[in-house]
Design a protein around this nucleic acid. Structure first.
Lengths: 71, 71
DNA sequence: TTCATTTGTTTGGTTTATATAACATAATGT
DNA sequence: ACATTATGTTATATAAACCAAACAAATGAA
């Protein structure tokens, strides 16, 4: 199971979903889907999100459990 | 531009592309494409690769330049 | 040299990420 | 009350990730 802290960190910086989307060049719906955990973004987008939220990819995203099952 | 150290670290551990693919549940062609930089894997796969190669996603993958252009 | 293994590469197919657009709801300010 | 803004959510469409199968080239071992 893939988990992330995007919503939490975005709120901490006072960004709206639209704000964050503009910073990383995706739509606000894409941000919403990621926050809901509905899909696993590309590593390129993950790196940009980490940069926008001033953290590392490893702090922003993690696998819960052994993660052998997920795609 | 997305760069990575998959090939280098895989060689260091003496894994074949097939070995690594099996460990992270993808085909060897997928590993080959990633090593060639031909696409940007999902964060889920990136996390599994980092775990298999005993490193962090941030050490394994990075954006060269400002990375504003890439998807 | 022959055999087995690894890698490079291509092609066609399926699945998933992402875009765009739309509509509803909640909150905020006038 | 009305307008604006942020979010939740859904639908359709496209691009990209990923699979499965194939074949050639390179390597290394017997």
């Amino acid at each position: 199971m893939l988990r992330n802290r995007v919503k939490e960190l975005r709120a901490r910086y006072g960004f709206t979903q639209s704000d964050l989307g503009k910073r990383v060049n995706v739509t606000r719906q894409t941000i919403a889907f990621i926050e809901k955990g509905e899909f696993s973004p590309s590593i390129t987008l993950a790196l940009k999100l980490a940069r926008a939220l001033e953290t590392s990819v490893d702090e922003l995203f993690w696998l819960e459990g052994d993660g052998e099952d997920e795609k």
